[in-house]
Design a protein around this nucleic acid. Structure first.
Length: 589
RNA sequence: GCGCCUGUGGAGGAGUCCGGUCGUCCUCAUCGCCCUGUCAAGGCGAAGAUCGCGGGAUCGAAGCCCGUCAGGCGCGCCA
């Protein structure tokens, strides 16, 4: 039907006779000569209709409207001198049309199909098939394709087998809320959609499959965010006879390659590494953005018995005084903005925030300056390294709350002070996170990663035990994480003990896995990497929606297909399901 | 579950604090006419809206109050 693609034509094609198919992106009618920008997936090329040379085609060209689908035949020629369009990949040439055929007409689209037009998010989702025609969105789809292709090219020679795991699986009590699928064959019972193929990939290791990977859809029925949806895709990996270094040595070159191929940037390997504790100490976060500095300092000892009562009390009660220094912050931020920082810190749960503007001659300007001794003033300057023009922000609170507040502050200030470079790709691993977390809700210890995560040492004291787990962070986003798994039944038993699980619970929740492990489980470990987020970062976007073909709205609704929707009563009958409250009235969407 | 922001011709925005002169304006799209080298073409003209929805106070509401729906961002939740 066609000989070439619109977007592929170059100077080398000059003189060629071509037939193209595509959508009318723009029509420029000069009364005589008429130009049309013809678009397909590969790009846009200018086609020219001359009234004298091809009167019939030119007449048809007058009728053409935006998004009509046409097929044209003509010859490629170099554009006349001075007429080239350097902004267009095909801009050196144009196609002189001899005949044109309208394959389909189109209604006027609800928004212009152009990158620079920012239509309403909802409208874009409703008409996703039009939104995806925009070159920017086409690029996003291609980016995902390239990432997937790169993964397969990387994993195959390393001996990884791509194995599919079921979509209909079993509800797990741990972790996120499951999406449930009612069973017709077993009325009253439900399948669950996978939150991840965690247990299945471990079973594949027991099955002797050695190295497994899968690009797999996972689903979690939790409130979506800009960087996390109800369904998402992960690169799931599991390796037998593997330790941390084996996992890292598979993932690092892959991610370096993705950055090289999609950004044209060489990132250095090995990636930076930090212990979880060090990361929290230095950045107040388990996913710090290392494209800029502003590391946190701890000043607790400086305020023991201080004249500044608020900090003295925090220090006495076992809290911490931590802070960061915003370069040029005092020079740039207004008083109003400084007050906003305090409000934001409170909004993040901290008791408050103290800002200290450093002025010339080591003088300080701060609401609390009058409470500080000279020793404290000098201590602050020395410990933080602040120089005139800088802004020092201090938070005194329980260590977790201080970290949360300062992490948020650090991110906000970096953006406000323009410290973030779009061209830097700062990977960092953390290792040795806590094995357990205390759950206030359940009033017991729970697994930080999951119950099969191997402890770092014999220490299983929940307050201090560390895990053989790891996370990879890029530019302040968590890309993924995993762990070395327990293969020793006795250690597994002790972990279950800490988690307060009875033998009955263990049997009902994890019986199949435990049983499998009795038949010769190899030492193994793995990792799961979020691909939506990776694509989002590589595309320079703020939301994973922008790198998904058909995303849902934040409510979980699907504006394109109209789901979720009520179903026919007969369908419910068959499943043995009665709806208690009608989900939502008609037209409520 | 909670907090914040948004909703105005087909699209994006201004107008909303401080009610009357506002269904007023800008950019794009649409329709018509003109134009033989533009490329976000240009010129002239036209059409297009119960200001998300419901209620309330007011002589009077796009604007104020209450409720509600939808979208976005965040907290809780979730790796």
């Amino acid at each position: 039907m066609r000989t070439h693609l619109c977007g592929e034509l170059r100077l080398a094609h000059a003189g060629d006779q071509v037939t193209l198919c595509g959508w009318v992106a723009h029509r420029r009618d000069h009364g005589g000569v008429t130009f049309v920008d013809l678009r397909d997936r590969e790009g846009v090329v200018q086609i020219v209709f001359h009234p004298d040379d091809a009167p019939e085609a030119h007449a048809t060209a007058q009728e053409l409207r935006g998004e009509w689908v046409v097929r044209v035949t003509g010859s490629v020629r170099e554009r006349p001198p001075g007429m080239a369009n350097v902004d267009l990949a095909t801009g050196a040439v144009e196609v002189v049309v001899t005949s044109v055929e309208v394959l389909n007409r189109a209604e006027t689209p609800p928004f212009v199909i152009e990158d620079r037009i920012e239509a309403d998010e909802l409208l874009r989702l409703e008409y996703r098939y039009l939104d995806l025609r925009r070159p920017e969105m086409t690029r996003a789809l291609r980016l995902r394709h390239e990432i997937n292709r790169t993964i397969r090219e990387h994993m195959d020679p390393l001996g990884f087998l791509e194995v599919e795991t079921p979509v209909l699986t079993t509800a797990t009590p741990e972790g996120a809320r499951d999406f449930l699928v009612p069973s017709r064959m077993f009325p009253g019972s439900f399948y669950a959609l996978p939150q991840s193929p965690q247990q299945l990939k471990q079973l594949l290791m027991v099955a002797g499959q050695d190295r497994y990977y899968q690009i797999v859809r996972c689903l979690r029925d939790e409130k979506p965010r800009a960087d996390r949806g109800l369904e998402f895709t992960q690169l799931d990996v599991e390796m037998s006879f593997a330790d941390e270094e084996d996992i890292v040595s598979v993932i690092e070159p892959l991610y370096a390659r993705v950055v090289r191929e999609t950004q044209g940037v060489d990132v250095t390997t090995p990636f930076r590494r930090m212990s979880y504790d060090e990361m929290l100490e230095r950045y107040g976060s388990d996913k710090p953005d290392l494209r800029y500095g502003m590391e946190l300092s701890t000043l607790t000892d400086l305020f023991e018995g201080s004249g500044f009562a608020a900090f003295a009390k925090v220090a006495a009660d076992g809290g911490v005084i931590k802070g960061l220094t915003a370069p040029r912050g005092a020079a740039v931020l207004s008083r109003k903005e400084l007050d906003k920082l305090v409000e934001d810190a409170k909004g993040r749960g901290a008791a408050g925030l103290v800002w200290i503007a450093v002025e010339d001659g080591r003088a300080l300007r701060s609401p609390v300056d009058k409470f500080l001794s000279d020793e404290e003033r000098n201590g602050i300057l020395d410990r933080t390294g602040a120089v005139p023009g800088d802004l020092v922000c201090l938070v005194g609170d329980r260590v977790d709350r201080a970290n949360v507040a300062l992490d948020g502050l650090r991110r906000d200030l970096a953006a406000r002070l323009d410290l973030i470079s779009d061209e830097r790709w700062e990977f960092v691993w953390y290792f040795e996170p806590p094995l357990f977390d205390w759950s206030d809700d359940e009033n017991k210890w729970v697994s930080n990663h999951h119950p099969f995560t191997a402890p770092l040492t014999d220490d299983l004291e929940p307050r201090t035990a560390k895990a053989r787990a790891y996370d990879l962070i890029l530019n302040g986003s968590e890309l993924g994480g995993g762990s070395i798994r327990i293969h020793d039944p006795q250690i597994q038993e002790r972990v279950f003990e800490v988690l307060g699980l009875s033998h009955e619970e263990i049997e009902s929740k994890f019986g199949h896995l435990i049983r499998a492990f009795r038949y010769g489980a190899p030492p193994h470990g793995g990792i799961a990497m979020g691909l939506d987020r990776l694509a989002m970062l590589m595309a320079g976007k703020d939301a994973i929606r922008d790198v998904q073909a058909f995303p849902k709205a934040q409510s979980g609704a699907d504006p394109l297909m109209g789901g979720p929707s009520p179903v026919d009563p007969a369908q419910l009958q068959e499943l043995g399901i009665r709806v208690i409250e009608p989900a939502r009235s008609e037209g409520g969407r």
